[in-house]
Amino acid sequence: MKMSPSLSVLLAVVASMAGIGGINCGLLDMFNTNSDYHLAASMDAVFGALRNDIGNFLEGNIKNPVEKEVTFWCGNRNSTQLKQTFVNDTDLDSKLDLSKPLTFIIHGWLDNSTRIWVKTMAQDMMKYADTNVCGVNWSRLARHNYYQVAMNHTLIVSSYLTKFVEYLRSAGIDLEHITFVGHSMGAQISGQAGKNLNGKIGKIYGLDPAGPCFTFPRDRGLQYRLDSSDAKFVQMIVTSRFMIGVGAGDGHENFYPNGGYSPQTNCAIPVTSDAEFADQIMCSHLHSTTLFRLALNPAIVYRARRCVNWPLYLLTFCNTNEANVIGVYSKQKAGHFYLRTSAFTPFTALFPTN
């Protein structure tokens, strides 16, 4: 299999950070892995191969006011169509039921709130959890290069999200009844907003939180990334460790389907080009959203076991350890939990099942 230079470089960089031996081909001389900028540049090089799907990266400084770049689309069981909702909205009562909890869904880099996974998750949240839902759309800010988005744009989004939450609190929704569900950089935005709100948010679900520029190769600090201090309860689902996702979860609960590594079992496609490699990683990265969404249905259970690491889990040393389940029905027990999932929908756990 012949790999292009940018693919080979990214593989080598990722392998060196993950502590994987056996790669010593001199390619790392092209990058200083102590620099967030160079790692982010390699992310841009590889995922630029997906331009046919996502379009070109946007360039330049942000000129629009924040309320144009970050918008909120809200609904509930009585009004399931998500409608744009504003700070100081004079029509708030028709969009939100202030007597019910509220869940925010926050997309990540190169994504937007009109994607099917966001819309479907919003409808399933309303169906199974009877909660208000607000999708946070920051798609134009998310379309810039990785470094600019990670270092600057996430802070813009989290600041305005904080302002919107504070407005809703003044309207009568308690912080402990608010949940953030964030994917990729959306998970880190959730952590930033949670930190701004002094950790008083009820729950945060971090779906494969973005790792580069947040936790490796250089940790920017807890004020920029999601961790267990950002809400009363934080769960992470990690599906692309040391690739786009964090190397290890830092929530109260951390779930690692298939060890947390890319490719996930349903994403194992042959790789011969940058575009296919990017597709494989993105498939694994997005798989966290699928598992969380499907787990909203009480009939679909992803049961995991507390374990020290993936090899010990595979060797069945953890089969008698405490069990827990992914998603909103978890036991909210601290620790790291591993499970192996099927390659076919609904991807339910293969073992252990008790």
Rank of each mutant, 00 (worst) to 15 (best):
F216I: 04
I23E: 00
G22P: 13
V118E: 09
L27T: 07
P212C: 05
S42M: 11
S99A: 11
F57A: 12
I20S: 01
D93N: 14
S229E: 01
G245F: 08
S35V: 00
S79K: 14
A12S: 15
G26T: 09
N309V: 04
M185F: 14
D97E: 09
T215A: 05
D274E: 15
Y338Q: 06
K68L: 08
G202F: 07
I106Y: 02
Q280K: 10
F277T: 01
Y256S: 05
N196T: 04
G206I: 10
I204L: 09
N61S: 14
S159W: 03
P257Q: 13
D89K: 10
R241L: 01
L155W: 03
K333L: 12
G75S: 02
S288F: 04
A41T: 14
D130Y: 13
I62G: 00
E166T: 11
W138R: 11
T290A: 10
G211E: 05
G335H: 11
Y313P: 09
N258D: 15
E166F: 01
H153K: 12
L161P: 02
K127H: 14
S8G: 14
A304N: 07
K232F: 06
L11P: 00
G186S: 04
F72Q: 05
W117V: 10
S342V: 05
S158V: 04
S159N: 15
G259A: 05
N196L: 11
L291Y: 13
P311T: 06
I189E: 01
F164A: 07
K100F: 08
Q192T: 11
V149R: 10
A187K: 10
L110T: 13
S170C: 09
L155M: 12
Q148H: 15
W73S: 05
I281S: 07
T131P: 06
F104K: 06
M125Y: 04
V157C: 02
N76Y: 15
M30W: 03
K127P: 02
A40N: 10
H107L: 09
K333C: 00
F337R: 10
G22T: 12
P298Y: 07
D208Q: 12
M30V: 03
K203I: 01
G327H: 08
M121I: 02
S330N: 14
F57P: 10
V136L: 11
L222P: 02
G211V: 06
A129H: 14
L155E: 12
P209Q: 06
C213M: 03
N52Q: 00
G186V: 04
Y313S: 08
K2C: 11
D93R: 14
L7W: 09
G194S: 05
H183R: 11
G172R: 13
Q235D: 15
M17Y: 06
D29I: 00
